[in-house]
Amino acid sequence: MKLSADLKAFAARLGHEFARPALLIEAVTHPSMSSPGRADNQRLEFLGDRVLGLVMAEALLEHDPDAAEGLLAPRFNALVRKEACAAVAREIDIGKVLKLGRSEMISGGRRKEALLGDAMEAVIAAVYLDAGFEAARRVIMAHWAHRIDAVEEDARDAKTALQEWAQARGLPPPSYVQTARSGPDHAPVFTICAQLKNGAEEKATAGSKRQAEQAAAKALLARLLQAPPS
């Protein structure tokens, strides 16, 4: 089985030459295109998630030998979550080579964050099965290394940090209220308001509820930390 020109170009962007091209084809085949004779990428996604997790765990330990588990865990979560995988997928343009059913193509599947993240994990598994763990680690580090350098500043879960701030001051956990939704069904935009019982609140808008909640929490926490003590 040979790769198409688009898949060859994608493999070059990824940084791995496949000895077993069928693995890459399977990795970019969405379930909407599966059939009795065509495997989809769900099983590879399951494996790729675990391979990515192991590589990131090792990399974080090497990057900061003195960091406690309490610091490592949020950094790890930031590096392996679906948003991070989707960001890498966009950088190497997985969307261009995804094999999608008609309904997914019409609904903008090539831009969907969850779909891109799943495909990235499947591609990692394809590399692992094609050439082993070290090959998978090289590919992962080529696309995640700069994220590891930056994760100390950005990894901490803003919602968790805001909740800890509130609890330390005897306040109940913050609430998150969706105040608006716009855009087409295949690319919705959500506006979320993070609220505390003391009246403090901030809004944020993003392409998923989770991102909007995180952004609102981050904005509210930043304002609270800048405010003079009462």
Rank of each mutant, 00 (worst) to 15 (best):
residue 37 G to C: 02
residue 64 D to N: 14
residue 73 A to M: 13
residue 79 L to V: 12
residue 55 V to Q: 02
residue 96 K to Y: 10
residue 42 Q to Y: 05
residue 135 A to F: 08
residue 156 R to N: 10
residue 135 A to V: 11
residue 152 E to D: 12
residue 168 A to T: 05
residue 156 R to V: 13
residue 123 V to R: 02
residue 48 G to H: 08
residue 129 L to P: 03
residue 89 A to E: 07
residue 124 I to C: 05
residue 36 P to D: 13
residue 155 A to N: 07
residue 143 H to D: 10
residue 40 D to I: 08
residue 149 D to F: 02
residue 44 L to I: 03
residue 148 I to H: 08
residue 75 R to N: 04
residue 47 L to P: 00
residue 54 L to G: 05
residue 170 G to T: 05
residue 136 A to G: 02
residue 135 A to W: 03
residue 46 F to I: 10
residue 60 L to I: 12
residue 35 S to N: 09
residue 124 I to N: 04
residue 85 C to T: 00
residue 157 D to Y: 09
residue 80 V to L: 03
residue 78 A to R: 14
residue 154 D to E: 14
residue 45 E to G: 01
residue 38 R to K: 15
residue 60 L to A: 11
residue 145 A to H: 11
residue 59 A to Q: 10
residue 75 R to M: 13
residue 108 G to M: 02
residue 47 L to R: 08
residue 130 D to V: 10
residue 161 A to T: 04
residue 76 F to R: 05
residue 55 V to M: 04
residue 74 P to Y: 12
residue 32 S to E: 02
residue 145 A to C: 01
residue 52 L to H: 05
residue 74 P to H: 12
residue 105 M to R: 11
residue 137 R to S: 12
residue 60 L to S: 09
residue 38 R to L: 12
residue 115 L to E: 03
residue 106 I to Y: 09
residue 98 L to M: 14
residue 76 F to T: 12
